[in-house]
Design a protein around this nucleic acid. Structure first.
Lengths: 376, 376
DNA sequence: TAAAATAGCAAAACCGGTTTCATAATCAGC
DNA sequence: GCTGATTATGAAACCGGTTTTGCTATTTTA
């Protein structure tokens, strides 16, 4: 107890001593701080100091809560004027840290350079921009391990929501996101065991209708060239094809190409496939880049499109419009997909829809008929 | 002085009173905090509390400064073990706020869905990933006003560096970035009045060599189809063409197409152009999408490639490899460009190179000869 | 006319990290 | 036995916002 007693007894002297030291330090600090004249960005503290107001007051005014917090019009005007003059931009990092919202969303696709994904990215960005969001993109390259790591990294950055084309094998991580109340919208393909928002194409109808159309054009030997992939969009496309073939009593013929093939290998495989099945009169390609390889193969074999063989590609491509002949496609409405995708996510982000309520949006593809198919 | 004196006199009692109140509050706070059992993420504070250490100590250990700060191996091990068990991920926002580094870079291109840009984006992402960076992309759509706003938004988010394909008219903003010591690498095109890092193609040589090649193949009437744009990459391509034509004593012929054209309009303009100049025996297209329109035009006119007319496109495209005939291209080495681009930026970000020292990297294009050109 | 309500703003706590400074304990040297 | 250096760690300031709480002066109500 003695030291405490000593303290008490000499309280005033001690305080006085400290006060002088403190003043001295203040002076020095001011001296030092003024010196560098750095072009440091204006902070809310600077504004508060310069105007001799509390920073809370400034914060309220800047966030449009002046009325609510009963701050005088006079002061409000003064602050707004000052901010406008100085061109103050609040630090988003600080804002994010305190609010917990980053206004960033993650776009995780298979490969950003793909025609389909880069176009979705473009449309999404426009929508995000309008709503004050920024997009971080990443490519999963269909690697579950890489994807898991990406999710970890993005969680550390506290992005507000996720748009993902999931590779199989990341069910646990998606579930973790959901159970932590982070909005996730799956896209293009889904994970069968996971209940969450999804936006995608009616792949089944796409190939089904394509087969129907070819059949009407008197094609009988219709093959499907697809990827050896168990992703839903691929299995659906195949299912649609098989169902339509069965419905018309035709025997299906499917070539499955490895995902890891380079273009040359795929072309070779197509060439052999077509040679081995000389009776073929039509091919449906399950993706646009498979179609590109297929076209090359057909060209190498000197077959005529559509006389010898009719073609329909899943997913449109700029090239299909200018190739000779032009190539028919089962087209995904890119802007509509992006729109639905963003709306679904935004509804969750802005709590217009409860997190638990899932929505599935299935967009209908459009069969765009061009020169590569006979009209019925 | 009286109240102060009163305070001093009753100091101990007051303290005791406060102590009890404090303890009571602590208890309540604990009660309340425990109740929700939220799955709130582990913070460095939680770790410090649970292990009864200061958070500074934890921070040092986690940042590999244990040795430097002479923290005992024992404690270090204990903390690391705990962190590993609980799977702690530090909050990047907090980290960024205090360090001033976000480990994010901005990729600002003309349009992310373009073949060229989306491929650059893909390569860049891979490099960024390896180095712990994330990329925010945005499309300028060549609109200086939009671009200015984008820069403002990204500055507020404190991205560490910028990779930009600049539209003309944002000189001031770029200068502002530079003078605030933010690394900026311009790319694909540059702003003549601004001294900063740049990575781009030798556009001049690209068209120059293309003309040379065509001339060697006995082509005399060589036209250039380009954009009516004053961006450097375009003016350079045109300059290379004009210089080569002059060198060979040939009279140049240039069609300038508006940037805002839709595909149909461009095709029409090409058709008219070719019709109006029936003597044409070769065309160089200044971009790959112009070439696509041009090919369509030529196909519509039933001209034979390369018999009637030879073709070379600036910037390769997947389609050029499969079109019949295949299309020759002045190819930009995408991975090399991305590599140099990222290296230039990273050198600045990691202070391997001083901010003021600018580097210009000019990549040589590769003339890829395919079916659309006669061999000399 | 005193008590209660409200206007108007300041102060402080908080978000989750990093970094500087302080302190206590031990040990070497004079 | 006192001083000074070293070791090992804790406390606190800071980054720049948001939000809760607190305080005073005035106005309204009983």
């Amino acid at each position: 107890m003695l030291p405490l007693y000593f303290l008490l007894k000499n309280f005033r002297q001690i305080i006085t001593g400290f006060a002088f030291v403190y003043l001295g330090l203040l002076y020095l600090a001011a001296k030092i701080k003024k010196e560098p004249s750095m072009n440091k960005k204006l902070s809310i503290n600077d504004i508060a100091n310069e105007l001799h107001v509390a920073k809370s007051t400034v914060s309220f005014i800047l966030n449009g809560k002046a009325k609510e917090k009963r701050i005088s019009d006079e002061l409000t005007e003064k602050v707004l004027q000052f901010v406008k003059e100085k061109g103050y931009q609040p630090n988003q990092l600080a804002k994010s840290l305190s609010t917990g919202k980053t206004k960033m969303i993650c776009l995780m696709v298979e490969k950003i350079s793909d025609y389909f994904f880069s176009h979705i990215a473009f449309h999404l960005e426009a929508l995000a921009y309008k709503n004050g969001y920024k997009i971080i993109y990443c490519s999963t390259e269909n690697d579950p391990e890489k994807t898991k790591e990406l999710i970890t990294l993005l969680r550390a950055r506290h992005v507000d929501g996720y748009i993902i084309t999931p590779p199989v094998g990341i069910e646990k991580e998606i579930r973790a996101l959901i159970s932590d109340n982070l909005p996730v919208v799956l896209f293009d393909r889904y994970l069968p065991n996971i209940t969450t928002d999804y936006v995608g194409l009616d792949n089944y109808n796409g190939t089904f209708d394509a087969v129907e159309y070819l059949v009407k054009g008197s094609r009988k030997k219709i093959a499907l060239v697809t990827l050896s992939s168990d992703q839903t969009q691929m299995t659906e496309r195949q299912a649609g094809y098989l169902a339509a073939m069965e419905e018309h009593g035709l025997s299906p013929l499917v070539l499955r190409v490895s995902f890891e093939n380079d273009t040359e290998t795929t072309v070779e495989q197509c060439v052999r496939f077509i040679k081995d099945h000389s009776e073929l009169d039509a091919i449906i390609f399950a993706t646009n880049y498979l179609a590109l390889s297929g076209i090359k193969a057909i060209s190498d074999l000197s077959l005529k499109i559509p006389t010898d063989i009719s073609l329909i590609a899943f997913d449109d491509h700029d090239v299909f419009k200018i190739y000779n002949p032009t190539i028919s496609a089962i087209s995904q409405p890119l802007d509509e997909l992006a729109k639905q995708l963003f709306k679904t996510l935004l509804d969750k982000l802005e709590n217009k829809v409860r997190l638990k309520d899932v929505s599935k949006v299935i967009i209908q593809p459009e069969l765009i008929l061009r020169g590569s198919t006979h009209s019925p």
